[in-house]
Amino acid sequence: MTDTEDLVRRNAEFADQRFAPDLRINPSGNMMIVGCVDPRVDPAQVLGVRHGEAAVIRNVGGRMTPATLRTMAMLGKVGQANADGRCPGTWNLVILHHTNCGMTDLAPFPELLAEYFEIPAAELGEKSVSDPRGSVRVDVGVILGVLHADDFLVSGLVYDVTTGRVETVVPETPLR
């Protein structure tokens, strides 16, 4: 078990060797990644994202739920409040799902999933819960249906937990 003492020791190492006091609240890479909480799939590690380069939202399945959309809206307001620290240019929203996701283990619990997605249980089939390629397409579709910005791209990737490789399922698509 990793205990608090170990975490404090690791933090001291981080503070001494890798801490970057000049980072700003807005990501330097104009990137936001939505990924799963699965410890095998740390989006920054999997995609080689540097510290401060992206805002990363993690939830069960890396899904685009109403709660995720609310979080994104809040982050947008934080970004606006700190506009002087924003890098100019296009933003990249990356939706990262993965193989062998624990969300598939929740398929026998439609009431729980319906609550998570804030939809009637009868509509769960449309969420493609057991198929990472299908679910990433669904979630890109959700974003394309709600966000409208000229300076935003959205893409959908699937990480294979057995090979460590990422597959582009939905290439960068501009929002309109």
Rank of each mutant, 00 (worst) to 15 (best):
T68A: 13
G145M: 01
M1A: 12
T71W: 07
A114V: 13
V78W: 02
L144Q: 13
N82L: 06
D151P: 00
I25W: 10
L93E: 08
Y159V: 00
C36V: 01
G61R: 09
P27E: 04
S155E: 15
F19M: 12
Q80T: 15
D151G: 08
R24N: 12
A149M: 10
A67R: 12
E167Q: 10
L153V: 08
G48K: 07
M31T: 15
N82W: 05
A122G: 09
G145E: 00
R50S: 15
G79F: 13
F14L: 13
L157M: 09
Q17F: 09
L47W: 01
C101Y: 01
A44K: 10
A122E: 15
H148M: 06
A73T: 14
L147W: 14
L96R: 05
L75I: 13
G164W: 02
M1G: 12
G85T: 15
L113F: 06
A121E: 14
P174D: 08
A55K: 13
V41D: 00
M72H: 04
A107R: 11
A121R: 03
R165T: 11
G61W: 05
V46S: 03
V129M: 08
I143E: 06
D151H: 03
T173P: 02
P174L: 04
V161N: 02
G125V: 14
P171Y: 09
I25E: 08
F152H: 10
Y159G: 00
F117M: 04
M74V: 15
V41W: 00
T68R: 04
R86K: 12
M72E: 04
S28N: 10
A81L: 15
D16H: 11
G48Q: 10
D38C: 02
N26Y: 08
H148N: 12
H148F: 09
D105G: 08
F117I: 02
M64A: 11
F109T: 12
V60H: 02
H97F: 05
A67W: 11
L153C: 06
S130K: 09
P39Y: 08
V142I: 15
S128W: 10
T68E: 03
V166E: 00
E115L: 07
D38E: 01
G156E: 01
P171K: 07
T2W: 06
V140Q: 07
K127G: 00
P132I: 03
A54N: 04
R176W: 11
T4G: 08
D42R: 13
T71K: 14
L7A: 09
N26V: 14
G48L: 09
V170I: 11
H97T: 13
R133W: 00
V37C: 04
V140A: 11
G61V: 05
C36Y: 00
G48E: 05
R10V: 06
V37T: 12
M72R: 09
F117V: 07
V136Y: 00
R165M: 03
F117Q: 07
P43H: 04
D139C: 11
V158R: 05
C36A: 03
D22E: 14
H51Y: 14
Q17C: 07
P39Q: 10
Q17T: 14
R63A: 12
A114M: 05
V94F: 03
D16G: 08
V49H: 08
F109R: 13
D6H: 15
P39R: 06
D3W: 04
N30T: 10
V56M: 02
V49F: 02
I25G: 04
R165H: 12
